[in-house]
Nucleic acid binder design. Structure first.
Lengths: 151, 151
DNA sequence: TCAGCCTAGTTGACACGTCAATCAGTATGG
DNA sequence: CCATACTGATTGACGTGTCAACTAGGCTGA
């Protein structure tokens, strides 16, 4: 027997939630873009690479590190390579293997982006919420994540 | 004098929040797609049109109703028109004006999508949270939205 | 009246994401 | 040995979004 549909109040909360997070994400992305010329995707890739030993990772490991599908990563790396932010290098032995390597330009772009990006997070996110709301949101994120199907 | 950057705890909450909402959005979108062949964008457009008098709206009004940029809407309407979900009609008088009109196929697709979509929202969102968390989330969304720049 | 501006809407280029197909190399079982 | 399956990675097609440029008609004021 089917259960009830959401109440109109729950639906309103859902829509407000979705619209607000989308707007927030867009504003943070626009700031990042304006201040450093990087997209959130670029930033995630550069962050993972800059923390990796030798500033290099296998595409598969990088994909796991930032929770991306390999195909998405491959397309994105192609674009980043064209812009000189990373380069790819073959792997001796198993020729399936490859490395994604952070270039100096990529490293410079990442470092230039870090502080402005964190400042945007503070201004748009941290400062909007009380400490209690921040705690509650951490709980809520965990509850939503844990309720998602298998993965 | 510049203020502090987010603490690592705040940053963790930020990242969890962003990743969770993104994952949730993706799962709801995938369900909608699987059950009705509609994207969230399609759904928003069809919802607005089905509530409009005569099932028709001027593109500008539609854009305002769903908070989209005109250009985004124009591209999306082109795709929906190709699939027969909507059609466009000229407007007598001011030839800049036009109408977006819900077709029978669009109406049918929307009605077929509604219950499964709301069920997904219940299962993935409503059921994941306690009533207190739901209330808190409504407050948090409002706080974040109100803190966003100008608009 | 007509230049300048505003409004409505479309278009093209390009970034981003997903899906399915493909390719190359390794491993494995008969 | 070799067909088959698996893994790492790329590619192509296509839907989606944004930005800037463009078309086109209406409005306004010197």
């Amino acid at each position: 027997m089917p259960r009830r549909l959401p109440t109109s109040e729950q639906l309103r909360t859902w829509r407000d939630f979705i619209e607000t997070t989308e707007a927030l994400r867009a504003v943070v992305a626009a700031r990042l873009q304006a201040e450093s010329g990087l997209s959130p995707g670029d930033y995630a890739v550069l962050l993972a690479l800059s923390e990796a030993p030798d500033r290099r990772l296998r595409p598969s490991d990088l994909a796991v590190a930032i929770s991306w599908e390999r195909s998405r990563l491959s397309h994105h790396l192609g674009r980043m390579e064209r812009r000189g932010l990373i380069r790819r290098e073959g792997f001796s032995g198993d020729s399936r293997g490859a490395f994604v390597i952070l270039t100096d330009a990529g490293s410079a772009a990442f470092h230039a982006a870090t502080v402005p990006h964190l400042t945007a997070v503070r201004e748009l996110f941290v400062e909007a919420l009380t400490p209690e709301q921040m705690d509650a949101l951490a709980q809520i994120s965990a509850a939503l994540r844990d309720h998602l199907p298998n993965r």
